[in-house]
Amino acid sequence: MRVPILKLHNYLLVSIQIELDDQTAMQFQEDLLSKIHETGATGVVIDLTSVEVVDSFIAKVFGDVVSMADLMGAKVVFTGIQPAVSMTLIELGIYLKEVPTALDLEQGIIKLRQELEEK
């Protein structure tokens, strides 16, 4: 199973709507980086509205993808993290402080615009 990655102007949009196993998460990481390279996208929004469980492995993959994309010159913002997911991650001890987030897709795009204009 692959996570679809859509291009909109110079942004990439991703909505994760499948149950992420480790393999799918790693594949997604690779696919997203290739897509950034291929399209020259400067910003990425990854929407997690439909994601009900984020465990430590998936959290690590998400954190890594932010740093990896950053190295390539693209900003990643996560949006739509569910209340239950947010509570569970903090209780697990995972703070994801380096990971930019926004309430929803719309706010995510606004945040990307701001971050990219700052440069």
Binding site: V53, D55, A84, T88, E91
Partner: peptide, 12 residues
């Protein structure tokens, strides 16, 4: 929320 806690714990 408890369902998410339980599912996450099982995953770990």
């Amino acid at each position: 929320v408890d369902q998410a806690r339980i599912a996450t714990a099982i995953s770990e």
